[in-house]
Every structure is written in C-alpha cells, then in structure tokens.
Design a protein around this nucleic acid. Sequence first.
DNA 1: CCGATTATCCGAAGCGCTTCGGAAATGTGC
DNA 2: GCACATTTCCGAAGCGCTTCGGATAATCGG
Lengths: 353, 353
Amino acid sequence: MSIPGKKGASLATLKDLSRHLGLSVTQISRALNGHSDVNEATREKVMAAARQLRYQPNLSARKLATGRSGTVGLVVPAPSHAANDALFVQMISGLSHNFSKLDVRFLLHIADERDDPVAVHRKLVDSAALDGFVVVDSRVDDPRVHFLQRREVPFVLHGRTLEAVDYPYFDIDNYAVGHRLTKHLTALGHRRIAFLNGMDGRSYSLARMRGYADALAAVGERFDPALHRNGEMRQSVGLVETIRLMENQTNRPTAFIAGNSLLAKGIYEALEALSLSIPGDVSVVAHDDLLPAPETAAMHPPLTVTEAALQDSWEPMARLLVGALEGQPLEALQLIGDIRFVERRSVGPAPRG
Amino acid sequence: MSIPGKKGASLATLKDLSRHLGLSVTQISRALNGHSDVNEATREKVMAAARQLRYQPNLSARKLATGRSGTVGLVVPAPSHAANDALFVQMISGLSHNFSKLDVRFLLHIADERDDPVAVHRKLVDSAALDGFVVVDSRVDDPRVHFLQRREVPFVLHGRTLEAVDYPYFDIDNYAVGHRLTKHLTALGHRRIAFLNGMDGRSYSLARMRGYADALAAVGERFDPALHRNGEMRQSVGLVETIRLMENQTNRPTAFIAGNSLLAKGIYEALEALSLSIPGDVSVVAHDDLLPAPETAAMHPPLTVTEAALQDSWEPMARLLVGALEGQPLEALQLIGDIRFVERRSVGPAPRG
DNA sequence: CCGATTATCCGAAGCGCTTCGGAAATGTGC
DNA sequence: GCACATTTCCGAAGCGCTTCGGATAATCGG
C-alpha cells in the first residue's frame, strides 16, 4: 500500500489556507472557530476558501492543542446471548448515529469478559484518545464510575448508581416502575407477588426491587426473598423460574412481575405449560423496554406493562455527554425519561385463597 | 464535569520520564520504541520507569509526529433486518476484539442509509483520525475502494471487487462455492437448478453465479436467468422465492442452491408447505457461513453444504489491515479462506422428467 | 488635531511525540 | 599514542493546531 507517510492528495492545512488567502494562520483559525475579533468579510472569505479546499481540521493536532479530540468511547462486553443481540445492535447504532449527528466520533471497544473494565478505560484515558465515555449497564456501586470521577474524565451513565449523584446520567424512574406494577396488583388483592427481576447488582434492578418492596409494605406485606429472583432477562429464564416458583404447592404466587418482555414471554410459556390461565389463575405484569420483539400488546392475553422505549435513551445519552464535554452545568445533564402505564388484559383480581 | 482542560491526575509524558531519569526525551523515546542505538541497561531502566509511572504514549501527539494514530475505522449501515443482527454482532465483536489484541483502536461509524458512504469515509480520512479502514460487503465495482485507493489510504476488504486486485483482502473462493455446489447436483443428473443468490451487485454473489454458470455450461446447460435470483439472504425470502419458482408447472427446478443457511431454511419451509419431499422431489444444497442459527446439520434432512465460518474472517481481517499499516508487501496481505464441502442427506438423483 | 478606545490582525510559544544530524564517549588496530 | 570506527547519547526542528500578548490601523470624543 504505497509509501507510508506519503499521502496521495495530502490534506489542506491551516497553513495552506493562510498561504492561499494571505492571512496569518492565527486569524484563519479564529475565523473558522467563530471568534469575535475577526472581520465578517474576511470570515466569509476564509469559510469559502475552507470549503473550496475541503479543509478539515486535523483532530490530532487540535487534541494536542486543546486537549479535546472530538471522540468518545464505549466499552462493553459482547452480548452474552443471542437473545440480546437486538438490544445490542439498537444501542450501538443509536449511539453511533447520534454522536455522528453531533459531529463526534464514536469508538467502540468490545471488552473481553476476562479483563477488568476499569483497566480498559484507564488505558483508553491514558492514551489520551478519548474525550469522554458512555457507560451502560450501571452497577449499584460502579467501579467504572469511581474511576472516571477520580480522573475527572467526562462521562454519561445509563442509569444511576445511587440516589444522590453528581454526574451526568440518563435514567428512567425504576423505583416507580417497581412500585407502580406492584401497586396495580396489590390493589386487586394480590399479596403473593413474584418478581423476576434483572441481573443482580444492576442499579435498575435494585431500584425496582425497592419500589416493589415499598408497595408491598404499603399493604402490610413483608418482602419475601423467596419470591424475588435476579437473573438474565431472557425467555428461558422466565420459563424455568416460573416453573420453580409454582412448584411450591402450599404458598404459590398469584401474580408475576417481569423485568422485561422477554421474561414475561417465558412466564406466559410456563403458565401455559402448567395449564394455568392468565389472568384467571395468575396475573402477569411487566416492564416493557419496547424492543422490537416480543410485542407485549400482541401477547395472549395482551400484557399490562409500564413502558419506556430503551431506544429513546441513545439520543439523550449522546446529547448529555456532549453537553458535559462542553462544560454545561450538572443540572442540565441529568435526565429522567418518562414511563407510561399501559393497562391491558393480563391482570385480574387475586383468586380467593 | 470539572474544569475543562484541567486533568485530575495528569498523565505521564516523555518529559516526565526524562526528568525522572536524567535522560533526554529523545533517548527515552528511542528506548521505548526499540531503536538500536540505546544501551540495553538504560533501556531496562526506561522501561521500568515507564511502567512505574504508568506511561502511555499520547496517541494524538504520536499521530502528529508520525502520521499514524493507531486507530482504524469501519463504516457500515445498521442491519437492515433483525435476522441479520447476529451476523452484525459477530462482525463488530470480532473486529473490535481482534484489533484490540493488536493494540489498535476500533472506531465504528453506523452510517445512515441516506448518506453517501464515500463522503463518510472522506470526512474521516480528512480529519486525520484514522490510519485505515475495514471495508465489508464489497461490491463488484466498489466506490469506497476506488476512493481509498485514490487517496492511498490503507484498507482491507472483506471480499474482492474483481479478479486481479492490488489491495489487501480476505475472501473465500466464492467461484468455487458456486461451482462445487452446482457440480454436485449436475453429477446426479440435475439440470434445472435454481439459485437463490445474495444481494445484487455484491462481489460474492457475482463470483458464485459465475461458478454456477460455468458448472452448468460444463454439462451443456445454458444459464437461465429465470432460475437465478438476487436478494436479501433471509428465511422469508427463501420461502417466497421458492414458492414462486415452483409455481411454474411446466419446467420446475429439480434442485435449489441457497446462498446461505437462512435462505435454505426458507426453501425447506416452502417445499414442506408444498408437500414436496427433500431429496425425493427436490434436492437442496447451500453455502453455510456457520452462523449460530440455523444449524444446517440439524435440519431435516441434514443439509449438504459448502461451509466456511464467517466468524473466522475477523481475525485475518484485523491482522491484514495492521500488516498493511506496517507496510508489509501486498502478497502477504491477500488471503483466501478455506471452504469445506460437507455432504449430508438433502441431495438425491434428479427425478425422471 | 490628539490621546484613547475599538476593531482587526499577527508572531511566537507550546501541546507530546519522533527523527535528523551531529556530539560525546568508548573501543579498535597499528 | 593516534586516527578511526562504533556505541550511546542529545538538541533542535517540526507535525497542525490554539492561544496569549501585543501590534497596527481605524474610529471617536472633545
């Protein structure tokens, strides 16, 4: 491939523009970057010449001068299971697309399961390649967040680690999700309510569990660890956990809450296999991330859910990170997305014990 | 997020090491980069200090000095259909993972359908952010390739555009795929052989078609455009195209070749729906990329295929691109992966007309 | 008409790295 | 002991950009 270093049509630089226009490099730079002390007429000329010569600033040079490279990164493991592929694709596409709309480049690092996420971030930070990070799948006490905060590297978190936080994030009110779904069931008399929650240690799982526990407490019901399960949110998990929970003949749950629609699908499948009807024998509700499949409205019976499109996270995530890079105040960088409660046909009154 | 530009624990630079060791910056740089004119003892000391101070070269600075940033890019559209998600995830993961093993960063740009791929590449090239590109889904006359060649930007292509090419690529022998599968069928007396091929304009589709046409010609059969279809390689496409092809009562194909296993699945489904048996009434063969699903060995009947794991492309792709960046000779940068012919139970002799 | 403000502009330095050309120190042969 | 080669080191320049501080010219008030 050609002689290394010898570029074919070498790129236009500020110096080229300077020569071309008989202006100093300084003034060209200031003109292009919208500084105030440059005559409007010359700015026009500079802009025109820049377009004509196809000038693009050299990002490495700019990075060196300003400390900002215009590139952000995401470090994620590959999807653990094919069922999560769609989610992964949506996330990657959403982020890449929205960053490029903001003229920011998006660096993706698919991490090995084995290696320490903090080490990967550190390496990227130390090589000064990135201005900031997107952090997803947040943990209740997330080491990546600690690291980035300590090093004062901008980032935006998908989720939150605790209640009071001092970094940019986009999240939905997961406490409300857990609370709302539970309350909907308790209002109809349900007391033994199983909750197939998300992965252990994830902040959204914890928040939802708290909402669930508090809504139970409100009707005098104690949180029963035997009815709460953490795990991957896949259909097969919903299937086996439901069967396990229904095994117990003496004190079966009368209702299920699913962390997402895939789990709910598994619950439906299990109940069907056990010849239990929804909502006659068992009620089911779920949170729906509005992934392409499965569609909760098309299930039999249609599933009652709280819904919030995960897909809608990526635009704000990109916007918030760029805001952070631009030094916007923290208040403007913390966003909570809406959730909607959609009542359908999967819930009935608790059967009489 | 903090005062922009003011880094918390600011990174170690060559100057720091220089001060620390009482050596010139030059010598530190040469020591770290393995140049010959540095005493082994001092090199040791430098290495040790670098480790201790957690020195990481500033890639932007290096880029400015050498023209190489250690970052490569991929521009792709988002998967057009959920059926392709798995493939997409495999590709992205495989590339990212293999590049990071080679200590190269991987920039992903999910392109909008609407915007011109060449323009996107141009912008990335002009901003001097990338050393080279991975180019996938190659076309018979690929504008991206033309652009990159003209600008002398290193790249590696997945596939080939023509027979005689002068750039790095990884490909499989798609001509052989088409030829082998067809010949297997003609040897058993089949003459009316339908081919559900990949997307129009893709180089692999063309190569396979040529192999198919030549193998037909070898038994005196003319290529019949009515029996050859280009399209997306999805199950539903296989289904409808098969039904359409079998509609023609007078001159039905006695065998099908599928571009991949998804298409084959659709063919199976259609033939089953039409109450046609495999291989009694119709024979089927396919090329199998060994995607996680569907498994051609587990189909009923097990499918005769040529197989080549797409998954195995990404390691060589990464290696070849890095080789190109390092200026290795072209001969070392063109690789053709193996294909295996696996005979199973989906083919029988042509039924007597 | 003059000193002071304002609008435009520019030179030079510096970001962290590599590399060219040469300098200093060490070793070699006779 | 000297001319020479070899080994090991260093200063300075430069990659393309931003920015600080100051320069120049135009404008203004009185």
